[in-house]
Amino acid sequence: MREITLTQIFEHPIAQKYLKRSGVAHAVAVSYHAFRLAVQHQVNPDLATKAALLHDIGHYEWYTDGKWDYEKYKKNDIHAIKGAERAHKLLIRLGENPQAAKEIALAILLHTDSYLPDGELHQRPLQKVVRLADEADEEPGGNHHYREMDDQLALKKIQELDEKVAEFLNTEPFRQLG
């Protein structure tokens, strides 16, 4: 059972603020990758698409002399930490199941290891799906954050993805997972 939809998340003013900062087109694309990968890896697509949509809402704008500074970002950024906290708070506020909100927040926290000391990170399946979905949409120099997408098209794509998730949750293969 879905407590809240991607559309409800997407339309919330807090999500809008941070999605616009980190790139709506990237968030939508990663959500679609997450749906495909969730089905492939037998992970709950509701949790995966929500985590993917919100995975970069912790981004801070790293600028030097008014221009995006990718090197400063790579050196100093902890967006996954801030994003996990923002996402958890937003999801709880919207009425998401608390355990689902926690799983989504953990997937956001662990979607990148750029802020961790060197070493291997053991990820659970949901966390791995979100990381792979993000990697599938990356562009050199962080350019994936600057692709444009019209607000109406983004909303339409999110609504279509909501329908795909709902349909999949009603299939026999998903019921066997649960």
Rank of each mutant, 00 (worst) to 15 (best):
M1T: 10
R2K: 14
R2E: 13
E3C: 14
T5V: 03
Q8D: 15
Q8E: 12
E11N: 07
K20E: 14
R21V: 12
V24Q: 05
A34E: 09
V39F: 00
H41M: 08
H41T: 04
V43A: 04
D46R: 13
L47Q: 07
A48M: 03
K50P: 00
L53K: 07
G58H: 03
H59N: 12
H59A: 11
E61R: 14
E61H: 09
W62N: 08
Y63G: 06
K67Q: 12
K72M: 12
Y73M: 13
K74G: 02
H79N: 02
K82G: 00
G83W: 00
E85H: 14
N97K: 05
Q99G: 03
A101K: 08
A101D: 02
E103C: 06
A105P: 06
H111L: 01
L116A: 11
D118T: 06
D118V: 10
E120Y: 10
L121D: 01
R124I: 05
R124K: 13
Q127E: 13
K128E: 08
V129Y: 04
V129T: 05
R131Q: 07
A133M: 01
E138W: 00
E138N: 05
N143F: 09
H144P: 06
R147Y: 12
M149C: 15
Q152A: 10
L153M: 09
I158V: 06
I158E: 09
I158R: 03
I158D: 07
Q159D: 10
E163Q: 13
A166Q: 13
E167W: 11
F168M: 04
F168D: 09
L169C: 05
L169I: 02
L169W: 02
N170Q: 14
T171G: 03
T171V: 01
P173A: 04
